[in-house]
Simulated assay, not measured.
Amino acid sequence: MKKIKTALLSYGMSGQVFHAPFLELHDGFELTGSWERSKKLIQTDYPNVKSYASLEELLADDIELVVVNTPVETHYEYAKKALLAGKHALVEKAFTTTAAEAEELNAIAKEKGLKLTVYQNRRWDSDFMTVKQVVDQNLLGDIVEAEFHFDRYNPLLSPKIHKETANAGAGVLKDLGPHIIDQALYLFGYPEAVHGDVRITRENSLVDDWFDISLYYPDKRVRLKAGFFVREAIPAYIVHGKKGTFLKQRGDIQEDVLKTGAKPNRTDWGTEAAEKEGLLHTEINGEVVRKNIPTLQGNYYALFDGVYEAIAENKTEPVTAEDGIKTMKVIDAAYASSEQKKIIQL
């Protein structure tokens, strides 16, 4: 199997938790190192890799794939430099700060024949995968409405300065928003219009920390919400169809397990506790049923499988730049809608 030499643009929580463990596990990748600005940590965990002193040094090395896992406001600049240097790129969410930036990166990648992938790992969360299975199997009939939440109870400001400083990449709409926006578009397609309400609710916050977005489709409405003052969460996924309802709480364990330092595997990885199974209440073959649905196994490894196949076998990226552009267009529209207090047509 061809090894794709891969470098990270930072080795903080994102590099340590979401990228390096999977690059190490996957037979198709070779982790060459990471750009490290102050703390030099990667060689403690991976002694045989490099710690690059600058982006220029990293891009000059013999690598094929660059993981852009730096703060959102830097994604456009760093991804552009990587593409212009002839490297494939895997870019964290939010893809960029605007749809226009995303479109420019896509154009560069197409022109140079490079693969540009958006890191939307939440498509492979166990909870969302189970919701998608229920919808795809038409267990609810025609979907009328859906509501996705990414709620937390955390009134304190983040210690990560870039997350709380007013800049083009900060705010919950560009932090948690891309997760559930991408999931909604992946499941239901691109909407006709967007209504957004974006607010600041925490004391002394300089960035948005609450949003309520409605996606308008000809036959359904999809509501997306996130906030930091939800002490008792409702189901994260609520889907109503003409035959029934499916409710699923957020339950994917992968992030929490990775944060303990545990390494992913290919067997029981991403298996939720049985008590978090979703509730299906619907009609099947003329009979009303109300039962729990076993949760599918989550696995971020599948995203890296897709990235490998895109580069090594010239297949379509698992999350395309076009997907990322659509998510950014929804985010741009949500901000415009909130400011103008009107529905924005897409």
Results as ranks from 00 to 15, higher is better:
244 G>N: 05
244 G>K: 03
245 T>I: 12
245 T>A: 02
245 T>M: 11
246 F>S: 00
247 L>Q: 05
247 L>A: 01
248 K>P: 00
250 R>T: 02
250 R>E: 12
251 G>K: 07
251 G>Y: 00
251 G>T: 13
252 D>A: 02
253 I>D: 07
254 Q>V: 07
254 Q>C: 06
255 E>H: 12
256 D>Q: 11
257 V>A: 09
257 V>C: 04
257 V>W: 10
257 V>T: 15
258 L>S: 15
258 L>F: 09
258 L>V: 09
258 L>P: 02
260 T>V: 08
260 T>W: 07
260 T>A: 08
261 G>E: 09
261 G>L: 08
262 A>M: 14
262 A>Y: 12
262 A>C: 11
262 A>S: 12
262 A>H: 12
263 K>T: 11
264 P>M: 10
264 P>Q: 10
264 P>C: 11
265 N>F: 06
266 R>I: 14
266 R>A: 10
269 W>R: 04
269 W>S: 02
269 W>I: 01
269 W>M: 01
269 W>T: 03
269 W>A: 01
270 G>N: 05
270 G>Q: 03
271 T>A: 07
271 T>V: 14
272 E>G: 01
272 E>P: 01
275 E>F: 11
276 K>Y: 15
277 E>C: 11
277 E>Q: 15
278 G>D: 01
278 G>I: 03
279 L>V: 13
280 L>E: 00
280 L>Q: 03
280 L>C: 05
281 H>S: 15
282 T>Q: 03
282 T>L: 03
282 T>Y: 01
283 E>R: 13
283 E>L: 07
284 I>C: 05
285 N>L: 14
285 N>S: 15
287 E>Y: 10
288 V>P: 01
289 V>G: 05
289 V>C: 05
290 R>V: 11
291 K>N: 09
293 I>M: 12
295 T>W: 00
295 T>Q: 04
296 L>R: 15
296 L>C: 06
296 L>Y: 05
297 Q>P: 00
297 Q>C: 01
298 G>P: 04
299 N>S: 15
300 Y>C: 01
300 Y>H: 15
300 Y>Q: 08
301 Y>E: 13
301 Y>M: 07
303 L>F: 14
304 F>W: 15
305 D>E: 14
305 D>H: 07
305 D>L: 06
307 V>Q: 04
308 Y>E: 06
308 Y>G: 03
310 A>L: 06
310 A>V: 04
310 A>N: 08
311 I>G: 04
312 A>T: 09
314 N>F: 04
316 T>A: 14
318 P>I: 08
318 P>N: 08
319 V>G: 02
319 V>N: 11
320 T>N: 09
321 A>M: 04
321 A>V: 05
321 A>I: 01
321 A>Q: 03
322 E>W: 00
322 E>M: 06
322 E>C: 02
322 E>A: 13
322 E>S: 11
323 D>Q: 08
324 G>D: 06
324 G>L: 07
324 G>P: 04
325 I>H: 03
325 I>P: 04
